[in-house]
Structure formats: structure tokens, C-alpha cells
Design a binder for these strands. Structure first.
Ligand SMILES: [Zn+2]
Ligand SMILES: [Zn+2]
Ligand SMILES: [Zn+2]
Ligand SMILES: [Zn+2]
Lengths: 157, 157
DNA sequence: TTCAAAATGCTAACTAATATCAGGAAGCAT
DNA sequence: ATGCTTCCTGATATTAGTTAGCATTTTGAA
């Protein structure tokens, strides 16, 4: 909770640098994003949660705030297979967006915060002349617990 | 054009194997996907194009056909920043979806058909126990022609 | 305190995508 | 041919996520 406050005021500074204000609505949005980190909530899901902290807030404001945070690279927008935009707070001092593991069996979404692409991106620069600034990487497959379950049920045959 | 016909009949076989028919509407959809390969068209964009070949076709059929092709792994669905689903015909004998380079200056979308992630995916298996079946990788950055233009205008200063 | 700019809430509008449903075509068995 | 079944289709209605418009409120500097 103390960390949260620090983080929020820090984000407030970034907003001020861009000539914008940390209004109560924006504060509530950021704090909810912090609280539900790595949950990949949609704008509407966030809206209902934020309302608990800031009941007067409107849906449009949530959308506007999320757009703002995305532009300032405080948050990242990511879309999985259902086509709904979801939001992640960008980790501090993280240059690039983190990666996601999407289990096709249980539907779970895991995160990888390690940047596995440094070499790949150099290769892309050399071979294709493309200067990578950021990336979106999602792996589709079977998570560790699901493949263990499969193994066990195979033993049972 | 000859190659197209071959490709279409080959896809027709895959449909038959799955107990489905290559109807005129589906044929027209596949042929349009082939014709506009690597254009990353949305369902509605495809719809207006397909109508030229098959004017009686309805939008719902296009959606249904694209779903079908995606399930049979004949096509791949990909979503960029605007949140709209776009469709790529999967290259023959290609295990994984290809990658995309999205230029933030000119908006161009390039493709990389080389699978750069073999080692990364082994790392993911060893470190996280996650068995990768497929992936979605998009790089955001500056394409080669745009960075050359930037260099030239810097010279001009 | 005044005032302009920024931000907000409400609602309507828009768009992509899906669901529904009443036909049609194709395949097979008489 | 005839019926029967299954699959497929087009039109339309509906849903859900998102954006636009606008009047009102809040904010922070002068
Ligand atoms: Zn995440
Ligand atoms: Zn799983
Ligand atoms: Zn592509
Ligand atoms: Zn470019």
C-alpha cells in the first residue's frame, strides 16, 4: 500500500510533465490498475472496480484515462483472442512490454517479464533494417500445470 | 493464377477432409485472400472485395468462412492496434504464424516469414514449463525506408 | 477572485461481430 | 423422380466495446 502511494505520485509527476493533472478519477484508475496488476482487465471490468473507490466516475472517463496512460507509456494495451482491449501497468524502468503465455487448455494468462528478444531484435535490424522500439509477443500453448495433468491422466490409462 | 487454382483445390481437399464443402462463396473468399495476400484485410474489407467475384454473398458467410479457415489452420487471425481482426492465409507447410513489423512512422506492415523464435521457445519451455504451440509476434518501430528518410533530412539541417 | 483551459459525466451514435431463422442446395436411400 | 437429412446461405436483428458530442464542473494560474 505504501509502495502504491509512491508509485501513484510518481505517475502523477509524469502526468504533470506532460501538462496534465492527476485528478481523483485518474488516481482511482491508476490505483485500481496497481491493485489488480497482471489481471489484464478490460475497460469495463476496470470501470466497475474503480466505481468502488470513486463512485461518481463515468465510463468515458475510464476510457479516456486508459488512452492517456497508454500514450504516456505508463500502461500498455494488449488484445488477446477475444478482441477486447486489456490494460497492463508497465513495470518501472521496463523499456519494452512484457510477454504473455496463453494456455489453450485452461485459458490462464501468465506473464514473462524477462526480455527474451534482445538478440532477435538485433537480427531484425541487421536483416530487415527495422529499428525495433517495442514489441508484442504472446505464446499460445499448454501451461505447466495443464501438461502435468495430461501426463498423469495418461498414466491412468 | 495457375498457382492460385492449385492452392484453392488443395484447400478444398482440406475442407473435404473435415467434412465440409468448397462452396462458390468459400472459393471466392479463399481466392480473394490469395489475391490480396499480406494485405491484412478485415472481414468487412474482404467482404466488399469478394462481392466483385461473388455478388450475392452475405457478410455473415464471410465471417463464417473466415472462422472456418482459422479453425482449420488454413488462415490466421491477427489483431493490430486498432482492435479489428485481420486475416492472413497461412503459408504452406509453415508450422507457426509469421511475424509482423509495424512502422510507427508510415504505418506500413511488413512480414517476416523466418521463424526467429525457436531458441526463445525452448527457453520458455525450460524456464516456465510452457509448451509453445504457436505465437503472435509484432514489432513496433521504424522501417528501413523511414529511417533512411530521417537520416537524409538530418543531413539537410 | 477571475477566467480560460482541462477534465468530467451523461447519452447517443457507431462499429465489429454474433445470433437467429427461414429458406436452399447437395448428397443419399429409397 | 421422391423424399429425407445435413449442411450452407443471406437477410436481419442484436449484442458488446468503444467513441463522439456537448453541457457542466473543476482546476490552477494571473
Ligand atoms: Zn501482462
Ligand atoms: Zn493451462
Ligand atoms: Zn501477415
Ligand atoms: Zn515506415
Amino acid at each position: 500500500m505504501v509502495f502504491q502511494e509512491e508509485r501513484i505520485t510518481e505517475i502523477g509527476k509524469k502526468l504533470h510533465q506532460a501538462g496534465m493533472k492527476l485528478t481523483p478519477q485518474r488516481r482511482a484508475t491508476v490505483s485500481t490498475l496497481l491493485e489488480y496488476q497482471a489481471k489484464h482487465l478490460s475497460a469495463e471490468e476496470l470501470f466497475t472496480l474503480i466505481k468502488q473507490e470513486e463512485p461518481e466516475i463515468g465510463l468515458a472517463t475510464v476510457y479516456r484515462t486508459l488512452d492517456l496512460l497508454t500514450e504516456l507509456r505508463i500502461a500498455d494495451r494488449v488484445t488477446f483472442e477475444d478482441g477486447v482491449a486489456r490494460y497492463d501497468l508497465r513495470c518501472e524502468n521496463q523499456q519494452h512490454f512484457h510477454h504473455h503465455l496463453l494456455c489453450s487448455v485452461c485459458g490462464k494468462v501468465e506473464e514473462i517479464h524477462e526480455d527474451l528478444l534482445v538478440e532477435v531484435e538485433q537480427e531484425v535490424l541487421h536483416k530487415y533494417g527495422f529499428k525495433v522500439q517495442d514489441h508484442r509477443l504472446t505464446f499460445h500453448g499448454v501451461c505447466s500445470s495443464c501438461s502435468e495433468n495430461t501426463k498423469q491422466s495418461e498414466h491412468g490409462d
